[in-house]
Amino acid sequence: MTNSSSVPVVLPTKGSALSTAMIRTEHLHLMREMYGLTPWTGYEPACKCPRWTVKPCRRTIRGLTCFTRRDWGVACDHPRRWQDADGNRVLTWEPYIGTDAALRSIESSAAIGEALASGVEVIVCTGSPYVTAVDRLHDTEAPVSDCAVVIFRGGAA
Rank of each mutant, 00 (worst) to 15 (best):
R59N: 04
A148W: 00
G36M: 11
A157W: 07
E121A: 10
T41G: 10
R32E: 08
T65A: 03
T140P: 03
P129E: 13
D86K: 05
I112L: 15
T60S: 14
I23Y: 12
C57W: 01
A21S: 05
C147M: 11
T25S: 01
P129H: 10
C66T: 10
S105V: 01
Y43R: 02
T68L: 11
S6W: 15
I151H: 05
R104F: 11
G113W: 00
E107A: 15
R89K: 08
A117W: 12
V120S: 09
E94R: 03
T20M: 15
V10R: 15
L91N: 09
R51N: 13
C49S: 15
P129G: 09
E26Q: 12
L64V: 02
A21K: 06
R69L: 10
S145R: 02
E94M: 05
L137H: 07
V120P: 00
L64S: 07
A85R: 12
L30E: 14
I61T: 12
T53W: 09
R24L: 11
R80V: 05
R24S: 11
L30W: 14
P143K: 11
C76S: 09
L11I: 11
Y35R: 07
G63P: 01
V122G: 01
R153Y: 00
T2R: 12
V10D: 15
P95G: 04
C147N: 14
V9T: 03
A46I: 04
F67T: 03
W40M: 07
T60M: 01
S105P: 07
M34L: 15
T38R: 06
P50H: 09
S19T: 14
M22S: 09
P45V: 02
R153L: 01
T60C: 15
R58N: 11
G36Y: 11
V74I: 04
D71W: 06
C125T: 09
Q83M: 08
W72F: 00
A102F: 07
V10A: 12
E94D: 06
G154H: 03
I61M: 13
I112E: 11
P8I: 12
M1S: 15
W93S: 00
C49Q: 14
T126W: 03
G154I: 09
S128K: 09
E26L: 05
E94W: 08
L28F: 08
S4P: 13
L103T: 00
A148Q: 03
P8T: 14
A46P: 02
P56E: 05
H138P: 04
V7F: 08
V7L: 15
W40S: 02
A115P: 10
T65K: 07
I112R: 08
A117P: 09
K48E: 04
D100A: 12
L30K: 13
L116S: 10
P45T: 02
N3T: 12
